[in-house]
């Protein structure tokens, strides 16, 4: 079985590079995101995290039907 699978894999040229590429892509991106997160200003983060609470609803009753946007 092992012989079989080894033959299978070694038939791909440069197979060893796949996991390395994958690691580099992931790691670089992750570091970039991490840097951005840590560098972000606190008030900006607060603004974002409060987005669900500002939905512009002022009137609590329906005064009509069949309105469309704008």
């Amino acid at each position: 079985m092992l012989k079989f699978i080894k033959g299978y894999v070694s038939s791909i040229d440069g197979i060893e590079i796949y996991p390395i590429i994958s690691f580099i892509i992931f790691f670089t991106f992750f570091i970039a995101v991490l840097y951005y997160i840590l560098a972000a200003k606190k008030n900006y983060i607060d603004e974002l995290s409060n987005l669900p609470f500002d939905d512009g609803i002022t009137i609590q009753t329906s005064d009509s039907t069949n309105h469309s946007d704008q």
């Binding site: 995101v33 972000a40 995290s49 669900p52 609470f53």
Partner: peptide, 15 residues
């Protein structure tokens, strides 16, 4: 109340 850590949510998403 807002989410515990918005920063964490961004890492959560991409990772």
């Amino acid at each position: 109340r807002p989410v515990f850590s918005y920063r964490l949510s961004i890492i959560h998403f991409w990772a």
